[in-house]
């Protein structure tokens, strides 16, 4: 039984990284369809993808990471993919780790799998403010969803059809990852974290700037708590 799998790759000004990302995906997972969501980049990100003969969706206006990922999820929903992978366009995720995050979905053990840098043996280096932030999310979100979620900001995720169906309609914007965890839990999707390796950033800069980090923390924490207080609005379709 083979599954139709798509990798959604959000990219904003990633001309230095995108080619390597696509080659990595092609090398390790040749059967997976690649869809790059070009978030209105000023550089040649879109052209590079097109030259490599992969699908690229050029957003007509810059929507940010949330809007870009959601576009990919809508694409996956409209084209009937069984499993959707979220895979960053900046080169920090590794295609050889995809197997680990899709296996629980193939086995029917989870609806959403998050690839975590902090689970298991691998130690991931990070600066102190970022560590504090990640620690706070871990504490708050683990309390909210009643199970330990160690890497709430990880954008390396896999979803089954039902989860994609939900997120295509309701996906948080701005800084979506931690909030999405709570939303998914509230709507009774089964979340699972698996340990994965990630690379340090190869080029470009993180979407989270130093000065915005306090705003980021407050916004995300508020959004998580409010997401938790929302009534579930999605009846899960049992597959």
């Amino acid at each position: 039984m083979s599954h139709k799998i798509v990798a959604v790759v959000p990219a904003f000004n990633e001309e230095d990284n995108i080619e390597a990302v696509i080659k990595d995906l092609k090398e390790h997972q040749p059967a997976i369809k690649i869809v790059v969501i070009n978030d209105c980049s000023d550089d040649s990100t879109g052209d590079i993808v097109r030259k490599l003969n992969e699908t690229v969706i050029n957003l007509v206006i810059n929507l940010g990471i949330g809007g870009a990922v959601q576009t990919g999820l809508k694409y996956a929903r409209d084209n009937g993919y069984d499993i959707t992978i979220q895979f960053d366009g900046d080169g920090q995720h590794m295609a050889c780790e995809i197997e680990k995050i899709i296996k629980p979905i193939i086995d029917g053990e989870a609806d959403v799998v998050i690839g975590s840098r902090f689970l298991g043996a691998g130690s991931f280096k990070s600066n102190i403010p970022r560590r504090i932030g990640i620690g706070v999310f871990k504490l708050v979100n683990s309390m909210l969803v009643r199970s330990k979620i160690t890497d709430n900001t990880s954008g390396f995720r896999a979803y089954n059809k039902a989860a994609v169906e939900y997120l295509a309609r309701y996906y948080p914007q701005d800084y979506p990852e931690p909030e999405a965890v709570v939303e998914l839990y509230r709507n009774r999707f089964r979340l699972l974290e698996v340990p994965v390796m990630m690379k340090e950033r190869e080029g470009g800069s993180s979407s989270i700037k130093v000065f915005g980090s306090i705003y980021y923390m407050v916004k995300v924490l508020m959004a998580s708590v409010i997401a938790f207080s929302r009534k579930p609005c999605f009846k899960e379709k049992k597959s």
Binding site: I57, N58, G67, T71, K74, Y75, D78, Q173
Partner: peptide
């Protein structure tokens, strides 16, 4: 609404 429309337009363009 703007976001939804931009996403729809981008998908349609593709």
């Amino acid at each position: 609404q703007n976001k939804d429309m931009a996403q729809e337009i981008s998908l349609l363009k593709n």
